[in-house]
């Protein structure tokens, strides 16, 4: 019973869906205000979601209907299940086993794969270009993201998220060694969430809606929801690994601090998409391999040095 509660309600689907919609609202509102615009009212993401649920699902004649219908749910399931291993407001996650950091990272890779397969099987030319782009982009940001997240794990000597956050609660000053890793992971997360400057797979002015060109109605609603949830999960992951502050207090304060940390990450993501133009796919790949990966290596090297000298 309690397992069912945690999967469906907290911290599972319902909590994440609501938080995801709120995060989307905050993202859109901040984006608008930073552009000196008004922005949407608070219920806009929810209203969009409900509206899409009520619309007709159109499956293209040429598309593979099973894959086409399955992929949105697949993406949604993958992101929701990854939250279970991430410590939210206390050091321990709901479930935890040794090496769960790697599992969470792979679970977060699945939505991108779902976008690719969904776009590919919808057979539209725009969707195919978009899906190939999202896969190309994945190979570029995934490596720096993994390396960025592994450096704090290396310092904490554990591949378990709960143990990593416990380590930084015990030694809070050590998390300052990971500032560079935080920046790298944040940039890579932009790529994972397909937000500007890395919104190349869904570049509106080039390939309409990219992967999602043929999606409509409920299926599109689920895709959107999974992106929103992915944003919250990604931000939670970054918060758990890089910002492990205020985890030892009581539940209410801890929870509030957790929300604030996630919103801080969301704010940084929004800021990045406000002040940069979209990159081209070749520029994006080059940027990731030429700048992000070497920086991540520097971070890893620094961590190894710190480990050798200090610990």
């Amino acid at each position: 019973m309690s397992a069912l509660f945690s999967i469906l309600i907290y911290p599972g689907f319902l909590f994440l869906a609501l938080f995801g919609l709120i995060a989307e609202f905050i993202d859109r509102k901040l984006y608008a205000r930073m552009q000196n615009r008004q922005g949407p009212p608070w219920f806009q993401p929810l209203a969009d979601f409900i509206k899409l649920l009520g619309k007709e699902d159109i499956v293209p004649d040429e598309a593979n209907p099973r894959m086409f219908r399955l992929m949105p749910l697949f993406a949604l399931t993958a992101v929701v299940s990854s939250i279970i291993y991430i410590p939210l407001w206390k050091t321990g996650a709901l479930y935890s086993f040794s090496g769960d950091l790697v599992v969470v990272l792979y679970l977060l890779t699945l939505p991108t794969l779902a976008f690719f397969i969904g776009g590919w099987y919808s057979t539209s030319l725009y969707a195919r270009i978009g899906s190939v782009r999202s896969l190309t982009q994945m190979f570029a940001y995934e490596v720096p993201l993994f390396m960025g997240l592994f450096s704090p794990a290396l310092l904490a000597d554990s591949w378990t998220l709960s143990e990593i956050s416990q380590f930084y609660v015990d030694h809070p000053m050590y998390s300052f060694f990971n500032v560079l890793g935080f920046a790298i992971s944040l940039i890579a997360l932009l790529g994972k969430l397909e937000k500007a400057p890395f919104d190349i797979p869904e570049a509106e002015t080039e390939i309409v809606a990219g992967t999602f060109t043929e999606y409509s109605g409920r299926l599109f609603a689920f895709f959107r929801l999974s992106i929103d949830i992915e944003m919250v999960v990604g931000a939670s992951l970054l918060a758990a690994v890089f910002l492990p502050f205020g985890l030892s207090g009581d539940a209410v304060i801890g929870f509030l601090i957790y929300i604030l940390k996630v919103l801080l990450v969301v704010f940084l993501l929004t800021l990045a998409r406000t002040i940069f133009a979209r990159m081209r796919i070749d520029q994006m790949v080059r940027f990731c391999w030429k700048y992000l990966v070497p920086l991540a290596l520097v971070q890893l090297l620094a961590i190894l040095l710190v480990k050798g000298v200090v610990l």
């Binding site: 930073m34 552009q35 000196n36 615009r37 500007a196 400057p197 919104d199 570049a203 509106e204 002015t205 406000t274 002040i275 940069f276 133009a277 979209r278």
Partner: peptide, 16 residues
Amino acid sequence: AGHEIGFDTLLMYTWR
């Protein structure tokens, strides 16, 4: 031009 290169912030400010 800003919109075409995915830089909507420029679009919003210039049109304002």
